[in-house]
Each structure stands twice: as C-alpha cells, then as structure tokens.
Design a protein around this nucleic acid. Structure first.
Length: 213
DNA sequence: ACATTAAGTGATT
DNA sequence: AATCACTTAATGT
C-alpha cells in the first residue's frame, strides 16, 4: 500500500473519513520538495491542491517590482486557501510559495475538489475551515500593515519561523527579514536591538537566537 | 592584510 | 517608519 497513507492518516485523520483518505491516495501525486525551493510562482496556474504531509511552506505576496510581504506558513495538516480560489476560478496565482525546509506534499488534481465537496461532508468542512483559518490569519496581517506595527510584526515573524522550523536558532540576516516584511534593514536592526536589550533574543551575525518569546 | 558583507547609528524627512 | 550617509564588526580569501 502507499507509504504516505499513514502520514495522511496521522495529519489529516482528524478531518477526513476513511473513504476519503482512500480516495485521496488513489488520485493524489506524492511530491518531495527540497529546502528553499519555489513551490508556486507568481502567476502560475494552479492545477493541484496541496496537502502538506511534512515540513512547511512559506507564503508571500509579491508585486511587479518584486516587493514582497510575508503572509503565513503552511504546516502539516494545512492546505492553501489560495490554491482553492485559484483552482475553482481557474485564475493565476496571486502569491508565491517557498519551502524553507525539505517538505512533502500530496497534490490533488483540481477536478476532484468540486466532486468531493458534494460527496464528503468531512471534505466540505475541511475546505471551509481552511478558508476560515486563512482569512483570520490575513486579517491580523492587515491589522499590522495598516497600523505599521513593525515591532509586533517582527515578533510574530520570529515566533512563526521558530515554531515552524522547530528551532530557536534562526539563520537569517536583518536584510532578509526586512525584505519579507517589506520594511528596511535599519528599522529591523533597531527593533531587533531593542528586543535583544529586553533579553527576548540574542543577536549575532547571520543568526538570531530566541531566548524568551 | 584586504575586500566583502552584515550590522549599528545619527540625522533628516 | 523610511532613507541616507557613514561607521564598525565579522568573515572569507
């Protein structure tokens, strides 16, 4: 039997009934993504809906000038709400997605999305909940953008990253962070410095160590 | 020792 | 908070 079926059970079993899990295994493509790979590029046409089995995917909003804003992480048990809108509307992707670590996912061809909505209640609930969770998440992003709460955004960024990668040692430059938050290096450096003086983090070159969040 | 790149800082808008 | 101009520190060759 398929090797990923058990993983599917572990991470999605709470949501999906057995029959659905069986069906997913029949039609899904299994894919392993190396660290630091683009999973979805801007204006890609999405033909599959992903279910994450292992690792994490970072989702960013970008514009034509290459400005980007970090939106959220996808983790095991998640799916991408963006892919749903894209798939159902047959639109091009408004976001980009990157793997930060080696990740594993199942790709479900678009055509099943609709079918399953009618057949499986658990699927309908899952989709609905995913949408909901993502929308909530985006609202908090909007809040912090609207009120220019860089300090809170930065804190959340570090928390998320540490959580998702399962480490307190983040290897990243201030410049990089600034890019993802669409801010400037100096601002990020200054805020980090403040956090360091409060013993929240420890700074070193190319590295931020988290002490107490 | 030197060049390169990351990070720190003050002033200005 | 962003930008500029400049300094200082860390790291690779």
């Amino acid at each position: 039997m398929t090797s990923y079926k058990s993983k599917l059970r572990v991470h999605y079993g709470y949501a999906f009934e057995d029959a659905l899990i069986d069906e997913i295994c029949l039609v899904a493509k299994h894919k392993v993504i190396a660290a630091e790979q683009a999973v979805i590029n801007f204006e890609d046409t999405i033909q599959y809906m992903p279910l994450l089995l292992k690792g994490s995917i970072k989702v960013l909003r970008v514009d034509e000038q290459g400005n980007e804003v970090f939106l959220y992480y996808l983790e095991k048990g998640d799916t991408c709400a963006m892919s749903l809108t894209c798939c159902l509307g047959n639109k091009k992707s408004e976001i980009i997605a990157l793997s930060e670590e080696e990740s594993e996912l199942l790709l479900i061809p678009v055509k099943y999305l609709n079918e399953w909505l009618c057949v499986y209640t658990s699927w309908k609930n899952f989709i609905f909940n995913s949408y909901n969770a993502r929308l909530e998440e985006l609202l908090t992003v909007i809040d912090s953008l609207a009120f220019m709460n860089m300090d809170k955004r930065l804190l959340k960024y570090l928390q998320d990253k540490s959580m998702v990668l399962g480490t307190l040692e983040l290897e990243i430059t201030h410049q990089n962070i600034a890019q993802e938050l669409n801010s400037s290096r100096e601002v990020v450096s200054r805020l980090l410095k403040k956090m360091e003086s409060k013993n929240i983090i420890k700074l070193s070159r190319n590295k931020i160590t988290i002490l107490n969040l």
